[in-house]
Design a protein around this nucleic acid. Structure first.
Length: 479
RNA sequence: GGCGGCAUGGCCAAGUGGUAAGGCAGAGCUCUGCAAAAGCUCUAUCCCCAGUUCGAAUCUGGGUGCCGCCUCCA
């Protein structure tokens, strides 16, 4: 079955069928690192992390480039406030970004190119654009001449005249057209700058992505991604720059994720309604944040509330408990011929994997993929409570656990399997002892004392459950 | 003003022509000494109006409400 992806450029789902030999080129617009990494940044990162892992699991090779725009107005302003250099400031927050992503279990891109390290290439592309007549210098700046690029507006479906009438800011007298945008900005007094044929200055916002995607992925790669707030002007301008310079389509598929909203509007640094990833991770596991994000389709808008996170946690926990219980049960299960019931569960496992793949192949519908995991979860729980003579089969359980480990663990990153038992060497044997004594009490029908032990342990955040296979305990951490 | 998107049960959320996935919450039941966990059963006709169609949540037109972009933004 072929993969289908929704392409912003055509505004419909398209077939995505690269040959298995070719490496899939992915360029995802990264961040402008001038303040702490927030949950809004987690969305595209987690989504693309999962897309990459899914594609790799399906046998493809992926090369992923993600930039840091480490020189820009905001960075300069913020650096001045803090009394450090712009590059020091952006390096600090780029580091914060990478740490946050590592903490979320997001696999790293193959390369994170920075604007400040690609000045010669940027100057080179600007020169190419000037030579071809798509750009013009003016007072130490260089502007892109949008009227020269006849396809301008094709990604965001805008018409140049409409855009102009919507102009809300003062028109720069150096520009031929109000919509022209800067490729090179002349430096103000004392500002960070590089020498160029047009005088000291720095790159405009959009040019770095055109330059760095070409350098690392060539002129016609597979996926270009980012938040849908980047469609205009950022990606529109990238297309104008790259396609004018190379004469080739920039990317074949444009994938845009929806915004993460907080308090009814987009989470963004300038609105000040941000929740940092590191803060959330102090209270909740990374798997929960991923589960929360992946439970929604990547293109839809996602409203963040802490209560929604705790609610999601209950579903996630059920999923994880099922897998843990299955792992525990393997040692008690039997190795015998498969009976009809075993056969049925094996079919369910297969069905789950089929549904999961179909969901992911349909524009990476992780929400639907997760639903297939819950379907298997229910079947497996039913199987685990089997009480008939033949009991449960170890091979079946192993197959189920393996499936969860790959689909939920390796690809989605939402499986939590360790941590319930104490790391303290003393606690485990001690708990064994307590539970053994409590079992004796229960056999003697001394339920009063047995219940007291359970209650007191509960006060210590240790949950005791009596199952057909014997007592089970776990530490409850936090929520 | 222009462009794009969204509106599905108490809450969250899939589904883009054939009669509504999944999660959470709720009710009842089963299992259990009790509990916990788990399982089973139950709970919607898809914002409003008009239309196309044998048939629409799904297509078309109109309306209402919300969000994003057009200024830095994932």
């Amino acid at each position: 079955m072929p993969i289908h992806v929704y392409n912003t450029l055509s505004r419909k789902k398209e077939n995505f069928a690269p040959s298995i030999e070719e490496t899939i080129g992915v360029y995802v617009c990264g961040v402008t690192p001038y303040s702490s990494t927030h949950l809004g940044h987690a969305r595209p990162s987690v989504v693309w992390d999962v897309i990459k892992k899914f594609l790799v699991w399906r046998g493809y090779r992926v090369y992923h480039v993600q930039n840091f725009t480490d020189v820009d107005d905001k960075i300069i302003a913020r650096a001045n406030e803090e009394g450090i250099s712009p590059l020091e400031l952006s390096a600090k927050y780029a580091q914060d970004y990478l740490e946050s992503m590592d903490a979320l279990g997001v696999s790293r891109a193959d390369i994170y190119p920075k604007v400040s390290e690609h000045i010669p290439e940027i100057i080179n592309m600007i020169e190419r654009l000037i030579k071809k007549g798509y750009a013009y210098p003016s007072e130490g700046n260089v502007y892109y001449d949008v009227e020269k690029f006849t396809d301008y507006g094709k990604l965001s479906n805008q018409r140049l005249d409409e855009l102009q009438s919507g102009t809300r800011f003062e028109v720069d007298p150096n520009k031929k057209n109000p919509m022209d945008f800067a490729l090179w900005k002349s430096a103000k007094e004392g500002e960070i700058s590089w020498d160029s044929p047009w005088g000291p200055g720095r790159p405009g916002w959009h040019i770095e992505c055109s330059v760095m995607s070409e350098k690392y992925l060539g002129s016609n790669f597979h996926f270009h991604g980012g938040g849908n707030d980047l469609i205009f002007p950022h990606h529109e301008n990238e297309i104008a720059q790259s396609e004018a310079a190379t004469g080739q389509p920039l990317a074949r598929y444009w994938l845009h994720n929806g915004m993460m909203n907080f308090k009814d509007s987009k989470m963004s640094k300038s609105l000040g309604n941000i929740v940092t990833i590191k803060d959330v991770l102090k209270k909740y596991p990374k798997e929960l944040i991923r589960f929360f994000i992946l439970s929604n389709h990547y293109r839809s808008e996602l409203e963040y509330h802490e209560e929604k996170l705790t609610e999601s946690n209950k579903g996630l926990r059920r999923l994880n408990e099922t897998v843990k219980n299955a792992i525990c049960a393997i040692s008690l299960a039997k190795n015998r011929e498969l009976n009809k019931q075993d056969q049925r569960i094996l079919e369910k496992i297969e069905q789950c994997e089929k549904d999961y793949i179909a969901a992911m192949e349909d524009d990476f519908n992780s929400a639907l993929a997760i639903a297939s995991l819950f379907d298997l979860c229910r079947e497996l729980n039913g199987y685990l409570s089997t009480t008939n003579q033949e009991g449960i089969n170890a091979t079946v359980l192993e197959k189920a656990v393996e499936t969860f480990k790959v689909l939920a663990g390796d690809i989605l990153g939402i499986l939590i399997l360790d941590e319930e038992k104490s790391s303290d060497d003393l606690v485990n044997p001690l708990m064994e002892l307590i539970l053994e004594l409590r079992q004796d009490l229960r056999k003697e029908k001394n339920f009063k004392l047995a219940d007291k032990i359970r209650d007191k342990l509960s006060e210590l955040n240790i949950l005791v459950e009596d199952t057909p296979q014997g007592p089970r305990w776990k530490q409850m951490n936090g929520q």
